[in-house]
Design a protein around this nucleic acid. Structure first.
Lengths: 339, 339
DNA sequence: GCGTCGGGAGACAACGTTGTCGTGGAAGAG
DNA sequence: CTCTTCCACGACAACGTTGTCTCCCGACGC
């Protein structure tokens, strides 16, 4: 590497241009009150020294407490759902000149608290959280300090804050209703830990749907606590190994659906077993059979979340908003399997 | 919302605890030289006032010029490849206590320059860039100022900097060689703009492979400038509509492959047309036919990138490193179609 | 010629924090 | 009992920037 040259400060620029520091500040910030000749001299010095504005120092001095950055904490930036949400939020943020500090929580409450603490220390202007904790009362001091917090995908507990979520229970009910209408009675449920609100809601939707149809829920058909594809795949395999295997499966999250698809494929049971998944994936349409899924409008989720955040940043102090989007059941072939 | 209470500063904490500001600083930073009683009093005041450390002010005063944040600019955080890379980088960064500022470039050079300028103003400690510009000489001043920059996925031009890339040309050659070995002679190429280095390299690999096999390249079979699924789908459809349609297709990027799959599916030609894609997707294995693809080890790409960045941050001033990973051709069913 | 006005430019302090040095008092040595 | 030593703690300045106030000088009116 070449010789490193420390960053020039306004003081350096001022010295080179033969003006005062304040005059440089005026030029850099395009303020009035600087003659054309001096302005040009300063501009030249800025270029010559590769001066770059120091935003943190500027923010500090201005004392507005604004950093023009927002924190976005999702479950996993590599997951299809989270990453599309992140992108949607990023677009809205950039439109308002906000940078995005991103973080993955991996359903780890400690990680959530640690990342939030970091974002707070960085004085982000706002926070979007897909919570991994079951209780977010620890955020009250931050909220009191004026930090806008918007909960996305999962409603907050222990704190009154804005949220943008999806009707998980309703989506799950629609999925299971659909399978019941096709005549299925032994419907398996594969989901994540009930401590995750969305997972629990989807499980409740499953149970409600069965109950409404007068079908007794067989606890041995519901497997909870599935985090990844492998676990889901193995879970479905062992369900099939039982004496009374399911004729249909409702998978409550994208990675679980994929794991289940692998299990069905390995068993050659794809066309014999009805499947509905929560979360749509771009390729579900192209599989054989194509996969029936509960689709969330991720872009809309992100837009609504960003809108609230931006409003709050603009000073909106109205009571917490609670936006609930409704998912849509996309009918495809996988739910057509015979009973 | 409730009454907002401005953030407490060390001065407030000091006043409440009846000590000097500097003593608060010592307690907050776990420095020695504070008696137990005073320490406890300060701690209590910190809790009572919900004091939160102000990292920017701290960084500024310490004058190390470090912010413990890195910028990661990828093509699109919602894309499977980019998001997995981002996640891999995030994990490595967090391990070293670094926060991640993320941004999507969408192959837009202006956006790249704007986001870089923003990151520089924020004084990120390092920068990872999947470049959208064809020339990165504009980054020389930043590099000279000591900013470590690592180019990922695409090698830099006009600047001597670290890079971690994939042998795109070799991967493409392997893909096309494979199709040639199966006897195909009319092999279509669907790719993005040649101004994108990786896209161009893959195109060159395609051409080299044909040439090595003595198969004349038919320009009408190569379609460049495809950005998304729809464009790819339409491109392949019009190739099929020609008098001499291809018997095999090489698609040079994940979204293009998906578009091509849609076209094949719509035409019912999935089993009649050989297909190899660059970039593997999790569900390719489950499609019928399963999709042969050139797989990049994204996690390894991220790890290597992060390693270099971390080394640089630790003071490594050795000449720029150039790491090239080799992709792997994953044989599946889609390349078995007859000639 | 004198007073006034206005615009360009600089001096100074401050944002929230920490490095450096200084001070006062208790403990220990002789 | 005095001198030294050490430790706990505080005063002050500074990081890079900007808001406020002041100053100077040329232009203008009478």
């Amino acid at each position: 590497m070449q010789q490193i040259r420390p960053r020039a400060t306004m003081r350096d620029v001022a010295a080179l241009a033969g003006v005062s520091l304040k005059t440089v500040s005026r030029v850099v910030n395009d303020e009035a009150g600087v003659g054309d000749a001096v302005r040009a001299r300063v501009r030249a010095a800025v270029v010559q020294l590769d001066y770059r504005h120091h935003q943190a120092a500027s923010d500090l001095r201005r004392g507005t407490g604004r950093t023009r950055a927002v924190g976005v904490l999702v479950q996993d930036v590599a997951n299809d759902f989270s990453s599309r949400l992140l992108r949607s939020l990023e677009d809205a943020a950039r439109e308002h000149g906000l940078a995005v500090l991103a973080g993955s929580l991996d359903e780890d409450p400690d990680r959530e608290r640690a990342l939030v603490a970091d974002m707070v220390a960085r004085r982000v202007d706002g926070l979007v959280i897909m919570a991994a904790t079951s209780m977010q009362d620890y955020l009250q001091p931050e909220q009191r300090a004026g930090l806008p917090i918007v909960f996305v995908d999962r409603e907050p507990a222990g704190i009154a804050a804005d949220s943008v979520t999806v009707d998980n229970r309703g989506g799950a009910r629609a999925a299971v209703d659909h399978l019941l209408e096709r005549g299925h009675r032994r419907i398996a449920f594969l989901g994540d830990l009930p401590s995750i609100v969305t997972a629990n809601e989807r499980h409740l939707g499953y149970l409600e749907s069965l109950q409404a149809a007068g079908v007794p829920a067989d606890p041995s058909l519901a497997v909870l606590g599935l985090h990844d594809e492998d676990q889901a795949q193995r879970a479905l395999e062992s369900l099939f190994a039982s004496r009374t295997p399911p004729t249909a499966v409702f998978t409550a999250r994208n990675v679980i659906t994929v794991g289940a698809l692998r299990a069905l494929r390995a068993r050659g049971a794809s066309w014999r077993t009805a499947l509905v998944g929560f979360d749509d994936l771009p390729l579900f349409e192209l599989l054989d059979p194509s996969v029936t899924a509960v689709r969330q409008d991720v872009a809309a989720l992100g837009r609504a979340t960003a809108q609230i955040l931006v409003d709050r940043l603009a000073g909106d102090a109205s009571p917490p908003r609670r936006v609930v989007l409704h998912p849509e059941l996309v009918f495809r072939a996988s739910s057509n399997a015979p009973v």
